[in-house]
């Protein structure tokens, strides 16, 4: 499985309140959530984002609340992958459980810039920056988590058992 897209870049500690503010949590409809995604940190994100785009951020991405609405909003915006130096742990779980591909790679997170065209191969963990012609090796998932992702999320995984 591969993702190819243009990068939206963010810094440290992007929290779930800026990914999807609580004032919009009275719904769980993915399309409605996507229409407010990143609104408190990047108002223009919803206009700029195209299907397949990639988010690259620094450390502790997704810190804060356990709201699954955050990865759902990101996925429903069309984002195909989030690359970060580190992820907050609940966000990490949630992303795997709902089938939003994420990958930890400190070097890539540092060097990739906004607007770069980037390719991610989830089977190998290889991240290739087409714009800058540079390559990185991300942290591959343990087998158990790969099985969840391959099944299309935790619910399908349990159903298939």
């Amino acid at each position: 499985m591969k993702a190819i897209g243009t990068v939206h870049k963010y810094g440290d500690n992007v929290d779930t309140d800026v990914i999807i503010p609580a004032r919009y949590l009275n719904t769980s409809d993915p399309r409605e959530l996507a229409s407010k995604c990143m609104i408190d940190i990047d108002k223009d994100f919803v206009n700029r984002v195209k299907p397949g785009d990639i988010i690259v951020a620094s450390k502790n991405f997704g810190c804060g609340s356990s709201r699954e609405h955050a990865p759902i909003a990101i996925k429903a915006s069309g984002i195909s992958c989030v690359i970060a130096e580190t992820f907050a742990r609940i966000f990490y779980r949630n992303a795997i459980n709902i089938g939003l591909p994420i990958i930890e790679c400190p070097q890539a997170a540092k060097e990739i810039e906004a607007g770069d065209l980037v390719e991610v191969d989830f089977d190998t963990g290889i991240i290739y920056n087409r714009t800058k012609n540079s390559q990185y090796k991300g942290q591959a998932f343990p087998e158990f988590m790969q099985q969840i992702i391959m099944a299309g999320g935790l619910i399908n995984y349990i159903n298939s058992k």
Partner: peptide, 23 residues
């Protein structure tokens, strides 16, 4: 608990942790 502050019950000597809705 599908709420990040589920870790509160650690005060009682329990293991408790926040997860998402799918979990």
């Amino acid at each position: 608990g599908a709420d990040s502050h589920t870790c509160t019950y650690g005060a009682l000597g329990a293991f408790s942790t926040g997860v998402g809705s799918t979990d």
